[in-house]
Design a protein around this nucleic acid. Structure first.
Lengths: 215, 215
DNA sequence: GAGGTAAGCGGACCGCTGGTCCGTATCGTA
DNA sequence: TACGATACGGACCAGCGGTCCGCTTACCTC
């Protein structure tokens, strides 16, 4: 532990007192530049921190001061884009919100996640490709897992909601999505329907007690 | 294309004329050292090429000459360990071999793969953590996917064998296994039974036409 | 066994990356 | 306007994967 943190007051969300005006401006510039660069390059690995700093018109240190490290920057970017969906799943209207019956909500959640990864290939790839254990270690994964598990638990006779949640989420992994659309040439709609069919099979037919709507 | 390959006649399998004695000996030493180092360190990222060369008692160039690059080394290591299972799935006896009815073979294949990743945490993590698109890009994945898909196609009323094969394989991803055993403290047997239950749910109940054995 | 030859060796070397330091410029405030 | 705190930026560093080239060594031939 260093005697006084010489850098990296990680500032994961810009919380605390109040950021200086130029700091806030630079933060936005960096996020915008990173987003653009990741979108332009196919592989996130080819985008360096120096590139992002240059594109944003700031020094490298600004980048690391604002986000801690590469992981932090990617996470911040990802979080920004994912926030609306997350919000919708937390307390939004059906079919994503918590009031939706599980046989409808689970597929809706997975479809939303899949569409997000289709629309933000680069970001999702960058996030999941950080290090080992990356998707699970921290960040948004536990949230989605818990949400999904909670919904799955309301389905009777489903043996292992916890593992099932993991397995269903694994079916939407960014690199798998990338492979299916890129190498196997599945269209967006094909992939969505495949995932929906698979999910339906896992959930089994809806019952009176678990789902109060006619299908 | 260089006028004469200065290095890297990749030698992925040591095929062709015949390798020199010391070359073969060094190759084995490198594989053994790499295996040991990966097993000792938790994260494959902390094992460098220089470490492996030093542990094997050879120069770095020997390493790159024999395996092309880091990816090649890891793949060679992985392939060596996985070969028996691969062989058993290709033309072995039940429950892994191709003569097994699908309702029995699919869970057996997945269980074998899961056990392999449990027994070779480090290797599987190293392999899947290489780059983006890593598990799907090359190597063993297409083989397992094809095997699984072929078996799934024999199950009537299973809507999308191709995607289902991907999804089931995704449930055995190395980092997920690592997360479940490491952070959620599932035992080996718990994880195996969870995967088996999940698989059974996906496959649905066996029928007369698809499976000729009583269950 | 001796000698020629090419395959193989090793470690100094390179380019590049993520990450850090510190003198300097800018912001917010009185 | 003057002053302290905050943030800036680019030179800098350590460590990585990967390469080069002069030297060693195994193999083949006679």
């Amino acid at each position: 532990m260093p005697e006084r943190t010489p850098l990296t007051p990680p500032t994961p969300p810009p919380s605390g007192p109040k950021p200086r005006a130029d700091a806030a401006r630079n933060r936005e510039a960096v996020l915008a530049a990173a987003d653009r660069l990741f979108a332009e390059h196919d592989s996130p690995g080819t985008v360096t921190m120096a590139d992002i700093a240059a594109a944003a018109g700031v020094g490298k240190a600004t980048l690391f001061r604002g986000f801690g490290d590469r992981t932090g920057l990617i996470r911040a970017l990802h979080e920004t884009r994912l926030a609306p969906i997350r919000q919708a799943a937390e307390d939004g209207p059906p079919p994503l919100g918590p009031t939706t019956p599980p046989h409808e909500r689970v597929p809706a959640l997975l479809d939303a996640l899949l569409c997000f990864k289709l629309d933000n290939r680069h970001l999702a790839l960058a996030l999941e490709g950080i290090g080992n254990d990356s998707p699970y270690a921290a960040g948004h994964y536990p949230h989605w897992h818990t949400t999904l598990r909670t919904a799955l638990e309301q389905i009777p006779d489903l043996p292992t909601p916890d593992f099932t949640a993991h397995a269903l989420l694994a079916a939407t992994r960014a690199d798998l999505v990338e492979h299916l659309t890129g190498h196997e040439n599945l269209t967006r709609e094909q992939l969505r329907s495949r995932l929906a069919e698979f999910t339906a099979r896992v959930l089994g037919p809806p019952t009176e007690t678990s789902d109060h709507r006619e299908t």
